[in-house]
Amino acid sequence: MILQPTFLFISGAEIAFILFIVVMVFGADKIPEIARGLGKGMRVLKDATNDIKSEITKSAEKNGIDADLTKGIKDEIKKVKDDFDDFTGSVKRKL
């Protein structure tokens, strides 16, 4: 069975068709301008998200609340991953 890489469950031909439609609708000269606008928008959104995250962290530290809620989850994921690696290692050795 041959697996083809896909992006968001869209094949290469479908991506090419979407790009063709975008070029037909907006024109080749407008695409860089649109891409720049989207990039700036994504950057502003990322900066706003980081600002909110840092404000929440500062406020939590100021009030004595443990801000690292994901530490326990990360530890559990690492433990499961290590257990899985141990299991697959023993299976690989037997093959």
Rank of each mutant, 00 (worst) to 15 (best):
I65C: 06
I2D: 14
M1T: 12
T88A: 10
M1P: 11
N63E: 07
I77P: 03
L38P: 00
I52S: 11
S54W: 08
V80L: 09
D75E: 11
R43L: 04
D75W: 01
S54C: 03
A35S: 13
V25P: 00
S11D: 07
M1S: 12
T88L: 15
I2T: 13
S54M: 12
N63W: 04
D82F: 03
V80E: 05
I31Y: 00
F9W: 07
E33V: 14
E76N: 09
K71E: 07
A28I: 14
K58C: 13
M42E: 07
K94V: 14
I31F: 02
E14S: 05
L19I: 04
K78H: 02
D29T: 13
K46N: 08
G72T: 09
G12C: 02
F17D: 12
T49F: 09
K30L: 03
T70P: 01
K94T: 12
D29H: 12
D86L: 13
L8G: 02
F17W: 08
K46I: 05
K94N: 15
F9Y: 13
T57S: 04
A13F: 06
K71I: 01
T57L: 01
V80I: 06
M42T: 06
Q4R: 06
L38C: 10
K74H: 12
G41L: 08
V25E: 02
D82H: 08
D66Q: 14
N50V: 06
F7L: 05
D68C: 05
G12L: 03
A60I: 09
F7R: 03
A13E: 13
A28L: 14
T88R: 15
I65F: 09
I65K: 10
G12S: 07
I65E: 12
D68S: 11
T6F: 05
D29G: 07
V80N: 01
A60N: 11
F20N: 15
T70L: 15
L69W: 07
A13T: 09
D47K: 04
L8D: 06
D75M: 06
V44Y: 03
M42Y: 11
K58R: 15
I15Q: 02
R43P: 00
I65A: 12
I31C: 05
R36K: 14
E55M: 15
L8Q: 01
I56P: 01
Q4Y: 05
K46R: 09
F9I: 09
S54N: 14
G41V: 04
A60M: 15
L45K: 12
I15N: 01
N63S: 07
L95I: 13
F17L: 11
L45N: 08
G12W: 01
S11F: 02
T6K: 12
D82M: 13
D47P: 00
F7M: 03
K92H: 00
G12T: 12
K79D: 04
S59W: 08
T49S: 12
